[in-house]
Design a protein around this nucleic acid. Structure first.
Lengths: 109, 109
DNA sequence: AGCATCTATCGTAATATTACAATTAATAAA
DNA sequence: TTTATTAATTGTAATATTACGATAGATGCT
């Protein structure tokens, strides 16, 4: 086999796992960090900043766009990217709801 | 190719991405939810709860253990699992530090 | 129009992940 | 000691991911 059995899990479980998987690559973390750091639209210098080939960066940007947390805007021959602040808040809430769970320390473990 | 170029990224980027990737499967989300929900040691009923084969569950548990967020404790023929609350707090901080970044809304995007 | 620049897509190779049957290992119970 | 029970490991097939060269598409410039 080798294909995740999404159908046996809840929508929440699938949604959270999908979001986590998109964050699960250092290049995508680096891209997001750079977008926050410049705090402006980043137009075309991502390849130089990250250090991967242009098609690879394009592929990572596509996944971030698919998740919805970045937006692209065509500006001549360039494309400018920035964080979708609305979607970022939603992502934050999604993770917070999961990570803020608390467990009591049990003697058995 | 096909192998992530970890060496071009920072330790933080690699660490966060690794943690996110471990959370990036619905079965592992489901396992963690179950551990929190029962708020006690879960001994042996995970296969029935999640709905995947025993070796598959064992494999997912191994990844969660490798990340350090769950602990296992041998109890006769069974193994009891629970959340490592210390490590969970660290994970929470790791994600919070990243997710709490804010961006201003820019007109270009 | 012709050329330069930048991004997306296609094709493909290498590697990683997911799932499970079969087996092994370890303890409990009879 | 034999048998039952439970978890981990091994082996393997199917699929997904990652990376990049080559190419295509779109816009700007001369």
């Amino acid at each position: 086999m080798g294909v995740t059995k999404s159908e046996i899990f809840t929508d929440y479980q699938n949604k959270l796992a999908l979001a986590a998987r998109v964050l699960g690559h250092p290049a995508r973390i680096a891209i997001l960090q750079h977008l926050f750091k410049t705090d402006s639209c980043v137009c075309g210098d991502l390849v130089g900043v990250i250090g991967l080939a242009q098609p690879t960066i394009s592929q990572h940007l596509k996944e971030l766009k698919n998740l919805g947390i970045i937006k692209g805007n065509i500006d001549g021959t360039r494309v400018c990217y920035c964080i979708d602040t609305q979607k970022w808040e939603e992502l934050k809430e999604l993770f917070a709801g999961f990570l803020n769970q608390t467990a009591s320390d049990k003697s058995c473990c």
